[in-house]
């Protein structure tokens, strides 16, 4: 049986761990060609690579800062040379930083906005040249449930993710006529990232608030993402999918 992403050329930013890694693995299971970027965690990147290889996928792996324009150009350029183009870009790289406004210093703000907002802009812009030329492609921006409604979230994080929502809407509108779709996936608290770090009472609060009574798994969210980036999905663009357990 051929996979749902057979031969699809996918790039996931921040793919060395957490949801990014699960996205890479889910895509690979469906037959995709997978590339991912990471910033610092070489051991995690190596681990992701090994897991992808175990699925029969030989990933391309790039180290760099998503907020570095040259890095974005280099990654997309290398993939274009290697694969002839790019079908799927997932802007997943993010920063987890929990801090109240009283302690939110300018470098924190810049790092957050650079990673979560400037990064997606740079990578989208780099990838879209080829996608528009091919009149085919899709971008999936990974947001967060807290940008969909008022919940307690660090201000710079909420602002960056809400900004990403605006970027998604505007890009969807702007590149739709070229057959390129841009959507947003905003998961709730998962078994990776923040969900593993929060104090137990916070996780309990989340469970109590969520209609499904649980936190999510990166694996189930990644499974949902497969459809969103696949060729089966032809009519959704500018859409927001928020698997958050019914918060």
């Amino acid at each position: 049986m051929t996979g749902r992403l057979e031969g699809t050329r996918c790039l996931v930013t921040g793919g060395s761990r957490g949801l990014g890694r699960e996205l890479c693995l889910a895509f690979a299971r469906e037959g995709a060609r997978v590339a991912f970027t990471f910033r610092r965690r070489e051991a995690d990147a190596e681990d992701t690579t090994l897991r992808l290889r175990a699925l029969g996928c030989e990933p391309q792996c790039f180290q760099g800062d998503v907020a570095d324009g040259a890095h974005a150009q280099a990654v997309v350029g290398a993939l274009t040379r290697a694969w002839g183009g790019l079908d799927v870009l997932v802007n997943n790289a993010g920063v987890q930083h929990v801090v109240p406004l009283a302690l939110l210093e300018e470098p924190d703000w810049d790092l957050m906005l650079n990673t979560c907002l400037k990064g997606p802009y740079l990578f989208s812009r780099a990838a879209l040249r080829g996608m528009i030329r091919a009149r085919k492609g899709t971008i999936l921006n990974v947001g967060v449930f807290s940008s969909e409604r008022i919940v307690e979230a660090p201000a710079h994080y909420a602002a960056a993710k809400a900004g990403l929502r605006g970027l998604t809407d505007a890009l969807a509108r702007e590149v739709g006529r070229h057959g390129v779709r841009v959507n947003m996936l905003s998961p709730g608290l998962l078994d990776v990232g923040l969900g593993r770090m929060l104090m137990p009472h916070r996780v309990e609060e989340y469970r109590a608030q969520a209609a499904l009574g649980r936190t999510g798994t990166a694996e189930e969210v990644a499974r949902m993402a497969v459809f969103l980036v696949s060729d089966e999905n032809t009519f959704m663009t500018g859409a927001r999918v928020t698997p958050d357990g019914g918060l």
Partner: peptide, 29 residues
């Protein structure tokens, strides 16, 4: 087309495990 929105419905009905109470748009933007 009905066929393409049907794929969205099938996806939500069969593959979603962690989203509820939400509205997903399939409207071409």
């Amino acid at each position: 087309t009905a066929e393409e929105v049907a794929r969205v419905l099938a996806w939500l009905a069969l593959e979603n495990t962690f989203m509820t109470g939400r509205v997903v748009t399939a409207n071409g933007g």
